[in-house]
Amino acid sequence: MKVEPSAADLLDIARATLLADVAPSLPEDKRYAALMAANALAIAGRELAAPESTAAELARLEDLVPGGAPPGEASTALREANARLARAVREGRFDGGESRARLLAHLRQCVRSRLAVSNPRALARLERNAT
């Protein structure tokens, strides 16, 4: 058994303490650093809470740039497939038609999960525009 409270809880309360008890009493030039630190804790907390998406992303990549997923680590397979996609995009293989639409749907999905960690406010904009 791990000791409770959990990492996520600790990040959360550390951030709240920083914002409520530390930042307000700092001079302006130091407050900025405290706000950055609070932001970093928030990002770390969201990353811990993010749903596992490797398998789904890998499946979409296999569909876009089939390469036969090599056996072994999923993270290695993801890296390789992602690099394959980047090369194919640069070569212009997704410039038009149906493949372009499939690529954009995939990229949108990737950006969505990255924004959920990095910047949920921008994610809200994406959801708004999509509806």
Partner: peptide, 26 residues
């Protein structure tokens, strides 16, 4: 540097903007 580290987390928002600006024209 904390500031440099956080800069990485600006990238997804820039990617979003690139996708939005390029989605209409073929």
């Amino acid at each position: 540097s904390l500031e440099l580290a956080l800069t990485a987390h600006i990238v997804p928002e820039l990617e979003l903007e690139i996708l939005e600006l390029t989605q209409e024209a073929p």
